[in-house]
Amino acid sequence: MKQLQFYIRSYLAAYFHLKVYLSIAVFLAVCIVVNYSYNFENGIVDSYYGSFWRWPMYFALMGFPFLVTCAMLYFFGLQRSWLYSGEFWLLFVFGFLVISCQRSFTLQDYLTEDLQYVDAKYIRRVLVKLRPIVLTVLPILLFYYLYERHRDDQRSWYGLNFKPFDFRPYAVLILVVFVGIAVASFMGDLTNYYPRYARTGGDHFASHHGLAEWVAVLIYESVYGLSFLGVEFFFRGFLVIGFARVLGGYAVLAMVGPYVFLHFGKPISECVSSAFGGYLIGILAYYSRHIWGGVVLHVALAWFMELFAGLQKIYNN
């Protein structure tokens, strides 16, 4: 807990600027209201599902809040070198091309179209959860090897290294998350969205193949948990650790906006809380140069949501 407090105090002492924080808060609040008022992502962006245009739409959607935050840093005179940095624009274009490709990818539909419905539904949901690993982690690792490796004296691999680090700050957060999710499970928007397994048709898949249902649960939840390695690797690894050489600690603030936008298709309570969670884990990643604590925390959060939402449904039925 002391380490966590030390990181937060150090970050605020070095990077807190009231006008910037208020500007970002107002900007994100307006974007959240617009999205949920007009069903922007689920109703407009998703209407282009399977279309090529969904890729540039996601590129604009995810890159927009990142650039807005950087513009605020420029306007308030906190960080201006990014605008004239070729490295910044290389990282920005590459990174947001990768995440927009991953989010708009629909090949899993074609891979499963000849399967029976009961198999196609379940396998498609499993393949979707594999996208962050295949389409985010692997391309960025290749980019690191070809471009970043010779510039990174710490050989951090965007936080993916296995050098020893203090896990205790994350253990405290996991306990907080456990209590928070238990309380949040009584909120209707979360229990309407979770558990995600309930939408996979895993029970029918298991029955169709003569398997115990726990096998289908284990497969899906394992891949679901693994997918958060891709989330953490991009948002805390690439956007924070990767951009730190260009933006310094302000990379944490720039990351928060895209991370909030990632949650636009989820319950609004989860979307709002993602701003605070992303900011906090971003600070930890910035100082520790690791993403593994964030991965464990994110997986715990997801599985706790699955567990408590599932228990709510069982209890209410």
Rank of each mutant, 00 (worst) to 15 (best):
I99A: 01
Q3V: 11
L78C: 09
G180A: 11
F40G: 00
G225Q: 07
L97Y: 06
S81E: 14
Y220C: 04
W303R: 00
G43Q: 02
P169H: 06
L127C: 07
I133F: 10
G210A: 08
Y48H: 08
L22E: 03
F233P: 04
F75M: 11
G86M: 13
Y259P: 00
V93L: 15
A285V: 08
F75A: 15
V215A: 11
Y49W: 12
F233S: 05
D189Q: 05
L142Y: 06
G86T: 10
Q108V: 11
Y147V: 12
S104A: 14
K129N: 15
L135P: 00
I133T: 10
V20G: 06
V20R: 02
D119A: 14
V93I: 15
G293R: 06
F94W: 07
S273I: 14
Y48N: 03
W214C: 00
F186S: 12
P195D: 00
Y117L: 15
N35S: 13
G249E: 10
G202P: 05
G265Q: 06
L97D: 02
T112E: 12
R196G: 01
V172A: 15
L138F: 15
F234N: 07
P164E: 02
E270K: 05
G201H: 09
Q312W: 06
G278V: 03
V126I: 15
H208S: 11
K19L: 12
Y49N: 12
Y58D: 02
Y250M: 06
S273V: 14
Q102T: 08
S51H: 14
H263L: 05
L211R: 08
Q312Y: 10
S23F: 12
Y194H: 10
L239H: 04
A216I: 07
V223M: 06
S185V: 04
V118K: 03
A198W: 01
V179H: 04
F228D: 06
F162R: 13
T112A: 11
D46R: 13
L127V: 08
Q79V: 15
F162H: 02
F165N: 01
H150Y: 13
D166H: 12
G294L: 03
N161E: 09
G282N: 09
S47R: 12
F52I: 13
S37W: 05
F6D: 14
Y38M: 02
V20W: 04
K121N: 14
S100L: 05
F178T: 14
Y7D: 13
V272H: 01
G180L: 08
P139Y: 07
L301M: 06
C101M: 14
F233H: 05
L280T: 08
V252K: 02
